[in-house]
Amino acid sequence: MIEWIRFWITAVILFCGILAFILEVAGLFRLGFVMNRMHASGIGDSFGLGCVVFAMIISSGLNLDSLKLFLLILFMWLTSPVSTHFLSRIEVNTNPFIARYVRFGTDYGKK
């Protein structure tokens, strides 16, 4: 019974993660502007990877492997958003036509 419940929880979370990865791939290939594409890939890199590895933790139980998987989530969640942050910062700093796509500061919310 316990094994059966564990299997279904794992399957549901794993399915959520795979859905996030599908969203990531679709957004990465369908969207045009670089910020939108980074947002789409951020969904997969944070939420999707977290879901998949968390499902692995549940299915493996509490042992050394699950600790390693937890560290994997920790480091990926630390490093991946930072690199995305810098990519977007470089885009804002170097793209001369950035105002076509993004509203800054006081302009935010205006039509």
């Binding site: 630390l78 490093t79 930072v82 942050h85 810098f86 910062r89």
Partner: peptide, 8 residues
């Protein structure tokens, strides 16, 4: 100078 990068 970026606080995010320094902290991480």
């Amino acid at each position: 100078t970026d606080p995010v990068l320094r902290l991480v």
